[in-house]
Design a protein around this nucleic acid. Structure first.
Length: 260
DNA sequence: ATGGTAGGTACCCTA
């Protein structure tokens, strides 16, 4: 968050999003750079962070109400924050959920790898939690770093990735259940056909990320049925992977047809 | 099968 504040400023000034959701802020709340971000035009902030790991934040040009943080899988680890966006042209608040699903470690075996078990538990908990705490007939957005690439063309090689954490059947099967739980629409695939490769993340461990192009689509934006007809465009900022001192994830921008 | 990078923290962890 603090190391890459200049990248956030670049994103804010070049793309001018109304709302920005961040994951892995890795900043305790008392050190969150709220004043700098307010200077970029985002006066309404919701953040939930801790030292060193995890952390999520919502930056908004519109008022946020009912800000809530959610402890998941019995841990207080700053991976889920939600709020109601009070858009002046929307009749009802838009409930937004910013998620950072655990990466899951290396071994895709819950018996020997606690982190993988945690990831599976986290997705299962969300699958139960959303239908009992949100209304699929109301405007709801769930987005974030979900650390799962569900479709064959969400990874550079489906066959080679089947045993790699992020694309294993154990994960993608549970992810599909989560996807069904609120009759979500995948806002990225709404615009990019499933036959086309689409990535939002490229590993740091490549000599040349662009030349090898072994990406994965780990970041997602899902919307409930009332918002689906308002989807206007999707822009994955691939170029941001080449910015100075980049994140290994790039921004995913969804535009909605809302009068301003 | 292996190690490759980035970053923070403290000599190792998480991604």
């Amino acid at each position: 968050m603090r190391l890459r504040i200049n990248l956030l400023e670049k994103l804010a000034s070049e793309e001018v999003p109304d709302v920005i959701c961040l994951q892995e802020t890795k900043t305790p709340d008392e050190f969150f750079p709220a004043e700098a971000i307010e200077g970029f035009g985002y006066k309404h902030l919701a953040f939930h962070g801790m030292k060193g790991y995890n952390g999520v934040a919502i930056l908004s040009k519109f008022p946020l109400e009912n800000i809530r943080t959610h402890a998941r899988t019995g841990k207080e680890d700053c991976r889920h924050i939600s709020a109601n966006i009070m858009h002046p042209q929307m009749k009802t608040p838009v409930s937004i959920h910013n998620l950072y699903i655990p990466a899951g470690g290396d071994a895709p075996d819950p018996d020997i790898n606690d982190k993988f078990q945690h990831k599976l538990d986290f997705v299962e908990e969300l699958t139960e939690w959303f239908p009992s705490n949100e209304n699929a007939d109301a405007p709801v957005i769930a987005l974030g770093d979900m650390n799962i690439a569900p479709l064959e063309n969400d990874v550079w090689s489906h066959k080679q990735m089947l045993k790699v954490v992020s694309h294993t059947p154990a994960e993608t099967d549970r992810f599909a259940e989560f996807y069904k739980s609120m009759n979500w629409t995948d806002a990225m695939r709404h615009f990019v056909p499933e036959e086309e490769k689409l990535y939002s993340w490229w590993s740091y461990r490549a000599r040349d990320w662009a030349a090898s192009d072994r990406g994965r689509r780990l970041d997602h934006v899902w919307v409930t049925e009332p918002l689906a007809p308002l989807l206007k465009s999707c822009n994955v900022l691939r170029d941001a992977r080449g910015w100075e001192r980049p994140s290994d994830h790039v921004p995913v921008i969804i535009d909605f047809k809302v009068k301003k």
